[in-house]
C-alpha cells in the first residue's frame, strides 16, 4: 500500500509537469499557426476542429486537469487511509485540496485572466506537495521485516 501511495503521489507530480509541457507546446503551435497566416476567431475556436496539430496540447491539458489528476488525487487520499505513511493522509488531503483549487482557477481564469497567474503558481505548489508526499514514504530506513511485507504487497 505504501508503494502504491508513493507511485500515485509521484504520478501526480509527473502529470503536473506534463500539464506545463503540453501547454507551452500548444502555445508555441498557436504562435506558428498565426505566423503562418492562420486566423482565429470565436467561431473557429468553438468549431471543434483541429486547426493546428499542437492544439492536442490544449485538449490533453483539459482532459488531464479535469479528469485524470483529480481522479489520481482522490485515489491517493483513499490509499492514504490504508498506507500508514507518516502524515500521509494530511499530505494526500493537501494534494487533493490544491488539485480542486487548480481546477477552479483553471475554470475561472477564462473570465478573469489574472487568475492565470495563480493557476501557474499553484501548479508549482501542487508539484512540490506531490513530490514531498511521495518522499514521505520511507525507503531505505524501513525495518527488514516491514520491507518484506511491503514488497509482498506490491
Amino acid at each position: 500500500m505504501r508503494s502504491v501511495y508513493k507511485v500515485l503521489a509521484a504520478l501526480i507530480a509527473i502529470e503536473v509537469a506534463i500539464q506545463a509541457a503540453v501547454m507551452v507546446y500548444a502555445i508555441a503551435g498557436l504562435g506558428l499557426y498565426i505566423e503562418g497566416g492562420g486566423v482565429l476567431d470565436a467561431a473557429a475556436v468553438e468549431s471543434g476542429e483541429t486547426l493546428f496539430p499542437e492544439l492536442i496540447g490544449l485538449i490533453l491539458h483539459g482532459l488531464n486537469g479535469m479528469f485524470v489528476i483529480p481522479a489520481l488525487a482522490l485515489v491517493l487520499l483513499i490509499v492514504s487511509f490504508f498506507a500508514k505513511v507518516p502524515g500521509g493522509v494530511r499530505m494526500a488531503a493537501v494534494v487533493l485540496g490544491l488539485v480542486v483549487l487548480q481546477v477552479l482557477l483553471g475554470m475561472f481564469l477564462h473570465g478573469m485572466s489574472w487568475l492565470g497567474l495563480l493557476h501557474g503558481l499553484n501548479a508549482l505548489a501542487l508539484f512540490g506537495t506531490a513530490v514531498v508526499a511521495a518522499r514521505r514514504v520511507p525507503r531505505a530506513d524501513v525495518p527488514v521485516e516491514q520491507r518484506t511485507r511491503q514488497s509482498a504487497l506490491t
Binding site: 476567431d41 470565436a42 467561431a43 475556436v45 468553438e46 468549431s47 471543434g48
Partner: peptide, 9 residues
C-alpha cells in the same frame, strides 16, 4: 447568417 457555434465579426 452565422451558422457556427460562436460569434463572427
Amino acid at each position: 447568417i452565422n451558422s457556427d457555434n460562436a460569434s463572427v465579426q
